[in-house]
Design a binder for these strands. Structure first.
Lengths: 246, 246
DNA sequence: GCGATCACTTGATCAAGATCAAAAAAGGCG
DNA sequence: CGCCTTTTTTGATCTTGATCAAGTGATCGC
């Protein structure tokens, strides 16, 4: 990562973009895009960059949610658990998504880093104060909520009505389109989730996920290296296996 | 509900709450709760009450979405379909929910009345103009989106990880808690959905839904009359069968 | 009130995916 | 490198829920 040092002439105290923000990869995504320079300064004074190891829990189901965060890099799993341990991943967040549930003190789900992840975290109080001041901020949060709602509903169709084969293909397609959101279906990428996580996302068992990946591989829809790296020769074909009309 | 007549001395004509709104059961729910009298007047001038028959489609997947609506009475199914006809209901909306997808021209799902339904519909343009004027309106829409997101994620856990028995019990519990939202778990209610719809909501077949209802009946968790009316002697017991910790 | 239609239930069989068990890769670390 | 742990794959068998097929009950129009 490269740090760009900005030489700001601060005659007027807070009119420039804070240094940390200017160099931030998520500068225009997440929640920061709509803020003015002075609001960004205010926010950045309370913000802390944090690196999160894969597998480490960022917030647990039922815990107090005192922080919001922008994901700078990495993938975060949002999951729900039944009392007997059955688990379902209900969402994946990619950089530069915003994490946190506005207007709620307690988290209804648990968030865990799936990969090496960098976040920029700030206390909920600061965000909630800014919502009152910056008119565009709530709009941005609203849009993100709507985006997550659309994704959740798409996934409900996958969970409720697709076969194991279609589920696995849908997952691969989802990752292929999110690794690098601008450029459509990526031809090659590393899976950010283990087989166990994929199973928890698809409502399947590890064994079934493994078998279906093997099946897709044998049919030539994908190639697999080191079990994490996936090559997709034909995005259209993957889509068709995912039950998506194209 | 009590109707409060406001005697405002606004020489200007539109300061009172419109008659149709004053008598409206959804007056404080839906989207209207946050509007001022004059905004309400503006909105009501473009609004139309409509009765919708069960089974009639209000908007189709992929169609242009030119209207928003408050549900005054009844239950609406939101569903998604695969090209081969497999269908998944991704949400149920109860009065006085708001229906409509802000900031999107095309509907990603289809909406269909499940029961006899009354709605108050207005053109998207009016709502989107009001969003700019009434600061509380977007907040209300945002809150509804977050509520729907929470519900969608809860249901993902149900779809992905629960058994057929737990799914059916979860559905009954959902209805029992939504028929009359204020008073917890209803002891007795009519199912707003047919077995086919229940199956589409739970990712099961009609036969499995029927068998599980029979099983719950034989175990004494519920009683059933005329196949639509359900009596729940013990809400806690139903919850336990639904896999919800209590 | 009586057949016709539609919604729901019940039964028999089947298959997709789960479970149980073990082997094979892939990392990690001394 | 070689030992150990963890992850992934593969195999055999079982179970849950799907499918196919009647049957029963409700509702509606006449």
């Amino acid at each position: 990562m490269q740090i760009v040092v900005e030489h700001s002439r601060k005659d007027i105290h807070n009119s420039d973009i804070p240094v940390v923000c200017a160099a931030c990869e998520a500068r225009h995504g997440g929640v920061c895009g709509t803020l003015t320079a002075s609001q960004l300064t205010e926010l950045s004074r309370h913000a802390a960059r944090r690196r999160v190891e894969p597998g480490s829990e960022m917030i647990g189901q039922g815990e107090a949610a005192n922080n919001y965060a922008n994901i700078i890099r990495g993938v975060v799993k949002l999951s729900k658990m039944l009392s007997d341990g059955r688990q379902q991943i209900v969402g994946l967040q990619f950089a530069p998504d915003f994490m946190g549930r506005p207007f709620m003190r307690e988290s209804a789900l648990s968030a865990e880093a799936a990969t090496d992840t960098d976040v920029c975290a700030f206390p909920r109080a600061v965000i909630e104060r800014l919502v009152g001041e910056a008119p565009g901020l709530e709009h941005r949060l609203h849009e993100q909520a709507l985006k997550e709602l659309d994704e959740a509903r798409d996934w409900m169709l996958t969970l409720g009505r697709k076969t194991a084969q279609e589920k696995v293909a849908s997952f691969l397609y989802l990752i292929a389109t999110h690794v690098d959101p601008e450029n459509g279906v990526a031809k090659e990428f590393d899976l950010p989730l283990s087989r166990a996580d994929i199973a928890d996302y698809l409502g399947l068992t590890i064994e079934t996920v493994s078998r279906q990946i093997t099946k897709l591989r044998k049919e030539g829809v994908i190639r697999v290296e080191n079990s994490r790296r996936v090559i997709v020769p034909d995005g259209r074909r993957l889509m068709r296996h995912a039950g998506i009309d194209c």
